[in-house]
Design a protein around this nucleic acid. Structure first.
Length: 203
DNA sequence: TGCCAGGCCCTCTTTAGGGCCTT
């Protein structure tokens, strides 16, 4: 049975290219439709957290002042993820920080990302928007705590991933829906989503 | 000085523009 690693970052801003860095990471391992392991840590970004981001996440400069350095936490997180394929909501965002920080540590990042936001746009086009909070509410998924903390968002994304796998399998008559199949189909044009899934199934 | 993400998607498009989504 395939295991995937669902991750979520809290950061000081939107772009590592502009100097933003992670303040917290959470990774949950999902196998056979359930969470089987968890990793979570605050980290010290060595730059101030803007007030508006503290208001959003609740993570303060005082909270990260005593946290381990980013490099230490990222090495631990990379070991925890191992070779498992990755999943995130709006994965382009988390992938940028994942790649940027691991690149500075000379750690290879071979695992591909699947994006629950791109997939949700394909699978639930009737919804008004595809924010994580909207999807959790619309699909009646578990909400384990305050949103915009890494572990809560990672767990909500994990539940969304499991629901997507189940719904795609049921809608397309597939016994198993792998990470690779969904990652390949998530960027297909909307009209070709089903055909791409079928092609991946036949391959 | 003033501005600064970026990839995807839709449409009043495709030689472009703007909304969505993450913090």
């Amino acid at each position: 049975m395939e295991t995937v690693a669902v991750l979520d970052f809290e950061t000081t801003g939107m772009s590592p290219r502009l100097g933003d860095r992670p303040t917290e990471i959470a990774v949950v391992l999902v196998c056979d439709g359930r969470i089987v392991d968890r990793y979570q840590s605050l980290m010290n970004p060595r730059r101030p957290i803007p007030a508006e981001i503290t208001r959003l996440t609740g993570i303060t400069n005082a909270m990260v002042a005593g946290a381990p350095p980013v490099a230490t936490v990222m090495r631990e997180a990379a070991r925890f993820v191992g070779d498992h394929p990755l999943v995130a909501h709006n994965a382009a965002f988390d992938q940028r920080f994942w790649a940027a920080e691991l690149e500075t540590l000379a750690v290879e990042v071979p695992a591909p990302f699947a994006c629950t936001m791109l997939l949700a746009r394909r699978v639930y086009p009737q919804l008004s928007d595809h924010r994580l909070s909207t999807l959790v509410r619309a699909l009646a998924l578990p909400r384990p705590g305050r949103a915009h903390r890494a572990m809560v968002d990672a767990e909500m994304t994990a539940h969304l991933w499991c629901r997507l796998v189940a719904d795609v399998g049921a809608a397309h008559g597939l016994d198993t829906v792998s990470h690779g199949r969904l990652a390949a189909a998530q960027r297909a044009p909307r009209q070709q989503f089903s055909r791409t899934l079928g092609a991946c199934a036949a391959a």
